[in-house]
């Protein structure tokens, strides 16, 4: 059994079996990343292109490290916005890259659906590394992996996702995957940050953070896009932090031993208090470390010649 698809565009489109296969595969690579020589020849001769239209040092570095540890050749390509303005479409750019015989294109783009558009237009495998507000599948996969390594079962798992859900691809990917796996997902944030009808996707919405955190086993904080202040989503960072910031007192409302997650980079003192970010319940650095193993797993599974 393998991952019988050319592209990894979303978790909404993956089956439970496929998600579990990726997590199991990541487990094998977790062992590899613990070795003295953290490199295996599985993707020797393959070319992975990181095509990042949006700057994201973390995700790009994580994919780059993952690809290099699999012995793939890695090219980082960050098209200047000017070439896009000149009328070169995403497909033009991608076809150029494909002509360099890229086997896998890892795409980060500001527009939802960019990865779908790309995948339709090129023969290379496309991995979505974040498209607009739509999905960020590998981030959610590493979140799931981190949860599982903590020994938590997905079925019935109480997960609180806190923050600007409407504008978060991380929230969407986690919501789709966690509900598929049978978790009880609560979304916490002001109504301005909840997308239309999201409760119909299987989540429960809370505007009162204290209520939403009750009994939660996993608290997933979203990064507040500070530049959104002034767009009438929230009045001030101060008020947001007071209403939806995760403090040590609030962590105590959750189930004892609950873990705190954050996709990074964190705004200390805004969505998460510094002592919480650095506490024992925080698995934020595990997420980063697991990210490489999960992405190795995804790259390995996508590297089949198809």
């Amino acid at each position: 059994m393998g991952l019988k698809r050319k592209d990894l565009l979303s978790l909404a489109s993956l089956s439970v079996d496929e998600i579990m296969l990726i997590l199991d595969t990541a487990d094998s690579f977790k062992e590899v990343t613990g070795r003295e020589i953290k490199k295996v020849p599985a993707l020797r001769g393959k070319t992975v292109v990181n095509l990042f239209f949006e700057p994201s040092t973390r995700t790009r570095t994580s994919f780059e490290l993952a690809a290099k540890r699999l012995s793939a050749d890695v090219i980082n390509f960050s098209p200047s916005t000017s070439s896009v303005v000149k009328g070169e479409t995403l497909l033009d750019t991608a076809r150029n890259i494909e002509a360099m015989q890229a086997d896998i294109i890892v795409l980060r783009h500001a527009s939802a659906g960019a990865a779908d558009t790309l995948a339709r237009g090129v023969k290379s495998s496309v991995i979505n590394a974040g498209d607009g507000w739509h999905e960020h599948p590998t981030q959610a996969l590493l979140d799931l992996y981190t949860i599982r390594r903590r020994g938590l079962e997905f079925k019935g798992l109480r997960v609180a996702i806190v923050g600007d859900v409407a504008h978060s691809r991380v929230a969407r990917s986690n919501l789709y995957a966690l509900t598929k796996l049978g978790a009880d997902v609560r979304l916490i944030g002001p109504p301005t940050m909840m997308p239309y009808g999201v409760e119909r996707l299987g989540a429960k919405v809370y505007h009162d953070m204290d209520k939403g955190l009750e009994g939660a086993q996993v608290i997933m904080m979203l990064r507040l896009q500070l530049e959104r202040q002034g767009r009438a989503l929230f009045p001030t960072i101060r008020e947001y932090a007071r209403l939806y910031g995760l403090t040590a007192e609030r962590v105590r409302l959750a189930e004892p031993g609950a873990i705190v997650m954050h996709p990074g980079p964190i705004n200390r003192g805004v969505e998460i208090a510094p002592d919480v970010a650095d506490s024992l319940s925080s698995v934020i650095l595990d997420q980063v470390a697991n990210g490489v193993a999960v992405r190795m797993g995804v790259l390995y599974l996508m590297s089949a010649s198809g």
Binding site: A12, W133, H134, R172, P195, Y196, G197, L201
Partner: peptide, 15 residues
């Protein structure tokens, strides 16, 4: 359109 589909697809909606 702003609705369930825009929510799922993560596209900015027009209500």
């Amino acid at each position: 359109n702003e609705g369930l589909v825009s929510t799922e697809l993560g596209l900015p909606g027009i209500p």
